[in-house]
Design a protein around this nucleic acid. Structure first.
Lengths: 239, 239
DNA sequence: TGTCTTGAAAGTGGATCCATTTCTTACTAC
DNA sequence: GTAGTAAGAAATGGATCCACTTTCAAGACA
């Protein structure tokens, strides 16, 4: 009698699609057809429909009546605005979180940052960077705030990747420096300082991003491209 | 051949439930059973399930696997934090909106404010107040920002009502004064000023709300109360 | 008398089948 | 040769039926 919770099928499907979208396997503009996904999982289309609703709630797909789901494509202004929204909300999440962070969590933060500095793989960086920030917010006990922050990260994920691909290692150095500033402030439990550094970090990222308009134009070659079958045949949760 | 768009059933069900929740007919803590709602609409449970997913995305209900849907109940800290989130995001929506507002929209804003000042019905106030603020944001063309703002309003709606019920007419005067400050700034197209007044308006509302802890405790008498049938038998979109 | 167990009832999750809408393509008329 | 139209294909939306989980209450046993 294991303590495994029997996850609903729709939740599993959602997790798989979420991983694919966040990992970039399915870029913005791609259409998601219920039947194709259902076949991949060997289920009916019903859990797929529910999964798509979940993802729509997280801002990962957009649904249009009688037209199905597709991965939203953002223009330059929308991406910039999303970063501005992050700049206003994430410092709040950090303020809420810091008093409740355990010493162990701060130790792990330091560990993650060391791994970021040691590793140079782009894919690892994207995952670790997200882990780092989310862990700094993990002391925040408001699901509304955390959910909103997560949604912002989700919707901008593809553009983060594209941005990191075009910006050189210099960008990585800057991020590391800024992470360390935030981390030091957290270790001192100095919420005010941490807030300032975080807001600056997001703000500078946004400004830097706007200097690379090539990542902000249509990322998918063919418009209305359809995602047929993906490389992996089964679910492999990433997030 | 009318130009009526045939709305999906799930959308209609969602609109009806949304109206009921926002109007207070179904208070926080109430459980929503798929079968009951399906009967009311003469449909199967399937569109109800999809409607519940939509509402969950808007923060109006919370879903637990194998346990169904219920209207979330917020504690004092959560409500306070939601107001703080509003204080940070809504001024941004206003800044984005003001340059795109038409003169006609500003005229209508003035009209709504006059109606608020003329009317004394609580129910009307809640509707008009929401209309006022949403109209000030209507120039903002980002669905992400608008959607987030709407979600915050939705989740706090019940506590807004409870708060207005206990606070006297003095509270209304203050709101009117603050609305007029915001409105004047908008008419001057002074985004900076409008932002300041709006942030102050939300901040003061939060502080005032925290002075009435009686509206923040469990609003529904019996825990796990079930909403059987409601007064109205059919859909009557409010929002 | 209190607690644990068991079984029935209620309710949600999923599969299959059918209806309706939308998109595509081929054909016709100008 | 081009544009408009209609028919067929493809994909989504909904209804009904079945399976599994949760819950609650009644009864048995310590």
């Amino acid at each position: 009698m294991t303590s495994e919770v029997q996850l609903a099928m729709s939740t599993q499907v959602a997790a798989h699609l979420r991983a694919q979208i966040l990992s970039g396997t399915m870029p913005p503009g791609d259409r998601i057809r219920q039947e194709v996904v259902a076949e991949q999982f060997g289920t009916s289309r019903l859990p797929v429909r529910e999964a798509l609703r979940m993802l729509a709630a997280e801002g990962l797909v957009e649904l249009e009546p009688n037209k199905g789901a597709r991965i939203p494509r953002l223009d330059e202004h929308e991406v910039s605005l999303l970063y501005t929204m992050r700049e206003r909300l994430e410092p709040l999440a950090l303020i809420e979180s810091i008093p409740h962070l355990t010493d162990e969590q701060i130790d792990e933060l330091r560990l993650i940052q060391l791994r970021i500095e040691a590793d140079t793989e782009l894919r690892d960086f994207l995952v670790l960077d997200r882990e780092f920030h989310m862990l700094t917010y993990s002391g925040c006990d408001s699901e509304h705030l955390l959910g909103t922050v997560r949604r912002f990260w989700n919707t901008t994920q593809h553009y983060r990747r594209a941005f990191m691909e075009v910006s050189g290692p210099r960008r990585m150095w800057i991020v590391n420096a800024e992470h360390n500033l935030i981390l030091d402030a957290i270790e001192r439990r100095d919420a005010e300082d941490a807030e300032r550094y975080l807001a600056g970090h997001i703000r500078r990222t946004r400004i830097e991003l706007l200097r690379h308009p090539e990542v902000l134009v249509a990322p998918s070659t063919a418009p209305h491209r359809t995602a047929r079958s993906t490389a992996s045949g089964g679910p492999q949760p990433l997030d």
